Structure formats: structure tokens, C-alpha cells
Simulated scan of single mutants.
Amino acid sequence: MIEILGKTSSINVRKVLWTCAELNLPFTREDWGTGFRSTQAPEFIALNPNALVPVIRDGDFVLWESNSIIRYLAGRYDGEALYPSDPFARARVDQWMDWQATDLNRSWSYAFLALVRQSAAHQDAQEIEKSIAQWTHNMRILDARLQETGAFVAGASFSLADIPVGLSVNRWLGTPFEKPELAGVSAYMERLGKRAGAASYANSSLT
């Protein structure tokens, strides 16, 4: 049984939960993080010296970093449909996962913390505007890709890449500012919404 350490309000924890749902993997989960057990506790630091969620235990195997975790789960538990072994197809999945973790994440971070989390340290109006502009730019890149595939971010089939990307789109939808119409993104979220994992872990009330 997979053990997941981390609170469900964490977007990175929800990546792991959604992946488990796609793979029909049973798991247990413990609440760790702000408002719950501290990730600075010695027993947590022993598992992840970065003091960040999620962490998983799979028997004696411990792993942290959310994208590494979901790649591991797909590789270990018959997730070929999500994370193909063909090098070309796998590279496309990895490309969009890495784009979400770098360019997309960096662009939405300030605006999200300011407008949703109401962080006192993120209330500079110019920085909020800058973050929104870059976030919108990246969402237009995603929209163009989705209109090209007419389906999912890595191609015609749902893949591991759609989990982090779909969760980031959820944050886009749940953050209060004026947004352009993105037809490809809207259709994409309708497709994702038909999946049980998305229904549980990727809707606009779970930013």
C-alpha cells in the first residue's frame, strides 16, 4: 500500500492522488504541512531534507519531488498508457511536465499567492500585473498546443503530463482576475472533467 504524506490543499500532493486514481492504486494519506503536522519535524526531515510535501513510502522505498513520484508510480504500476516507453512519446510527456514545473509555475506563483492566498508578502501591484501578464502568455502557449492536438497536451491520448498541467489550469480558473477566452483550454478542461481523478482533485474549488 502506497503511503502519501501531505495535505490535499497542496497542488503537488494532488498530482500524486490523481495519479493513484488513474492507476487504481490503493493508498493511505497523512496530513503534513501548514495547519497540520510540521514538515520541520525530525521524522519528516529524515524522509525529505527539503521539508516539503509530498513524500511517498512504497514499502521501504521513500521518494520526494512530485513529478518524480508520479513518474515512478506510472513506471512501477503498469502505467504505460500514461507514461509510454517509446522514447519519442515519453519525451513529449516529459517536455510538458517540465514546462509546467518551470515556466508555467514561475509565471503564476506571485499572482496566485497575492489573489488567492492573500499573502501579505505578495501585494506589490506591479508584480501582480507582471505575473498575470506572463501567466496569460503561457496559457496562450498551452491553448495553441491544445487546439493543435484537439485532445490532450502531449497528443491524442491522456498522459501523465495532463495531471500537473490540468492542476495548473485549475489554478488559472480559480484565481480572480480578467482572463481572455481560451477555447482550447476550455474544451480541454471539459475533457479532463470526465475523468474520475480530475473530478476529485482538479476542480476550481481546489486551488
Rank of each mutant, 00 (worst) to 15 (best):
R71M: 14
G193Y: 08
D103W: 08
A125H: 11
D94F: 07
A101R: 02
F177I: 06
V153L: 11
L182M: 12
R71P: 01
G174Y: 06
R76N: 09
M139D: 00
D143S: 08
F177P: 03
A161I: 02
R145K: 13
L167D: 00
Q118Y: 04
T136H: 07
L73R: 02
R171C: 06
Y188G: 00
T136S: 07
I70G: 00
K130H: 01
L115Y: 10
I141V: 15
N67F: 04
S157Y: 05
E190D: 14
R71G: 03
A114Q: 07
V116L: 14
D86G: 13
M97P: 04
S66E: 03
A121N: 15
E80W: 06
D143P: 04
Q126I: 12
F152I: 06
R191D: 08
V153Q: 00
F112C: 05
Y83R: 09
S186G: 07
V93M: 07
P176R: 12
M97L: 11
A120H: 14
A89N: 08
Y188L: 01
Y72H: 10
R140L: 13
Q147V: 12
S159C: 05
V116A: 14
Y188W: 08
A187Q: 13
R117T: 14
Y110R: 03
E80Y: 09
T136M: 03
N138C: 05
A183K: 14
V185D: 01
F88W: 12
I70N: 03
L182Y: 02
A81W: 10
D94P: 06
P84C: 13
W135R: 02
W108E: 02
R171E: 02
Y188R: 00
P87I: 15
A111W: 01
N67A: 12
G166V: 04
E190K: 09
M189P: 00
A89Y: 05
T175Q: 04
Q100L: 05
F112E: 01
L82I: 09
H137I: 06
R191L: 10
P176E: 13
A151G: 03
P176V: 10
P84H: 09
G150C: 11
R117N: 13
Q126L: 14
Q118A: 08
L167Y: 00
D124N: 15
W96R: 02
D143H: 07
I128C: 05
A183D: 14
L115M: 15
P176D: 15
Y83Q: 10
F112H: 07
G75R: 11
G155K: 03
A89D: 09
M139L: 15
Q134C: 04
Y110A: 01
A101F: 06
V185H: 01
K130T: 07
N67C: 10
Q95M: 13
P176N: 13
T136V: 07
P84V: 12
V185F: 00
A133E: 10
S159R: 01
E181G: 09
Q147Y: 02
I69T: 08
G184T: 11
F88R: 13
T149P: 08
V165A: 07
S131I: 03
Q100C: 08
M189L: 10
Q126Y: 08
S119G: 04
R145A: 11
N105H: 15
Y188P: 00
Q147D: 12
Y83A: 11
N170K: 10
E80R: 13
L82P: 02
M97H: 01
A114D: 09
D143E: 10
G166C: 09
E129K: 11
A183S: 14
Q147H: 09
K179Y: 06
L146M: 11
D103S: 12
